[in-house]
Computed example of a mutant assay.
Amino acid sequence: MTTKLAVVDGSYGRSYGHNKHRWYTSPSTSYTPSTSYTPSTSDMPSASDTPSASYTPWTSDAPYTDTPSTSDIPSTSDVVPSTSYSSSSSSAWQLAHATFYGDETASETMGGACGYGNLHDSGYGFETAALSTVMFNNGKACGACYEIKCVESKWCFANAPSIKITATNLCPPNWYQASDAGGWCNPPRSHFDLSKPMFMKIAEWTAGIVPVNYRKVSCGRQGGIRFQFQGNPYWLLVVVLNVGGDGDVSEMWVKGAQTDWISMSRNWGASFQAFSKLGGQPLSFKLQNAVGETVYAYNVCPTYWSTGQTYEANTNFIN
C-alpha cells in the first residue's frame, strides 16, 4: 500500500578562475573551465559496491507481511494515486549569474557531487547544472529543479525560451579570486554552472558569464522514485533518483519487515545511509522534501535484495 502526504555582462568580463580542483592565478580569456566536483575515492563505496547502470522495478516475489500501522498511514483525504500528477506553483524569480563547464558533449558533467553517476543512465541527461556553495547547501539541493532565463545582457538570445535544469553537482568556491572577478561560486553568491549545451540555449557561449533570473519549479518526473542500493546487509547506502515534485530530499527513513522506522543520515549528495542489519527482509522508505511534503514507498525491494541494484517504487512526489 502506498500513501502520500502533502514539497552582466561586460562588467563581469569573460574570465573564469576554477577548473575542478585546479586553481588559476589569473583569469582565463575565454569561457568557464569546469567547476564540477567529484568526491574523492575515500568518500565512495568500494568497487564491489558500485551499482550497475540498470535498475530493476520490482513488484513482488512473495507476499509482503509488513502491514503499516495506523500511525504510518495518512487519513483517506490525503491519499493520492501514485500515477496522478498535478502542477506545482513556481517560486518567485530571483537574480543570479550563469557560466558553463565542459564542451558541447557535456561529458565533463557526468558524475558529480550528488552521486548520480552517468547522468544519461540516471535520466537527467545534459539538462543539468552545478550550484554555488550556498545553493548546493551540503547536498540538500541535489535533484532540485530550476527554471532559468538570460536577462539584461547583450549576449542573451532574443526571445530565447527559458531552460529547465536539475542540480546534480557542486560548483566549489575559488578563494583565490574575488566573488565578482572569477570566484563566481563563492559564498554568498547564487550561481549556476551549466552544462555547455544548456548555456548555449539561452546565450552566446563566448560571453562566458551572463546574468539570469531563476526560480525553483516542479521537476515533472515520470515513474516512481528509484533507490540505488550500495553498501552491505549491515550498512545500507542508498542513492535516491528520479524524485518528483521539487526534486530534493531533506530527510529519509528506512523500515524493514522486522524493524521500526530508522532515520537515515546523509552520506554525501543524494546518498543516505543506515547502520543497521537490514538484509534478508523487504524494505520500505519514507522521504520528506524541503517544503515538508512526505512520501511513503512501501515494499520497494524483495526480501533478498542486493547491492548493485536499483529498485523503483510505485509512488513519487506530486509534480
Rank of each mutant, 00 (worst) to 15 (best):
S60I: 09
T70R: 12
F126A: 10
T109P: 00
S11G: 09
S42Q: 14
K277I: 04
K20L: 09
V134R: 10
A160G: 05
R266T: 08
N242F: 12
Q288H: 01
V254P: 09
Q273N: 08
A178G: 14
P173C: 08
G143F: 03
L5H: 13
W235R: 12
I163E: 08
G308W: 12
D9F: 05
Y304V: 11
V295R: 09
S306V: 10
N316W: 03
S40Y: 09
P68T: 06
K255N: 06
A274C: 07
A160K: 11
S218P: 01
P211M: 03
N174K: 04
G10T: 11
G245R: 03
Y101K: 01
S271K: 13
A203L: 06
N174F: 06
G13K: 10
M264D: 04
G102Y: 00
A141I: 03
Y146I: 04
E104R: 08
G183C: 05
Q281W: 10
Q281G: 03
I165K: 11
S306F: 09
S276A: 15
G143S: 11
G269M: 07
S26L: 12
N319P: 02
T29H: 10
D49A: 14
F136R: 06
P74S: 10
S162A: 15
G115Y: 01
A53H: 14
P27Q: 12
T109R: 12
T259K: 02
T315K: 02
T99Y: 03
T50V: 15
L95M: 10
V243F: 03
M264G: 08
V243R: 00
G182Q: 03
Y55D: 15
Q177P: 00
A207S: 13
S52C: 06
E204C: 01
N319D: 15
S36F: 12
Y214W: 07
T259W: 03
M252L: 14
S276D: 11
W253I: 04
T59S: 15
C156Q: 08
I163V: 15
P57F: 02
S306R: 15
K196C: 08
E293P: 00
F192S: 06
S75F: 07
W261C: 07
T35Q: 13
F229M: 13
K255Q: 14
T109D: 06
I165D: 05
T315H: 01
Y234H: 11
A257P: 00
H120C: 00
Y311L: 09
G308E: 12
S36G: 14
L236D: 02
L278N: 00
D72V: 06
F317K: 04
T3R: 06
S87D: 13
Y16I: 02
F227Q: 06
T38R: 14
S77H: 07
N242W: 10
K140E: 08
C156H: 04
V291E: 09
D103L: 03
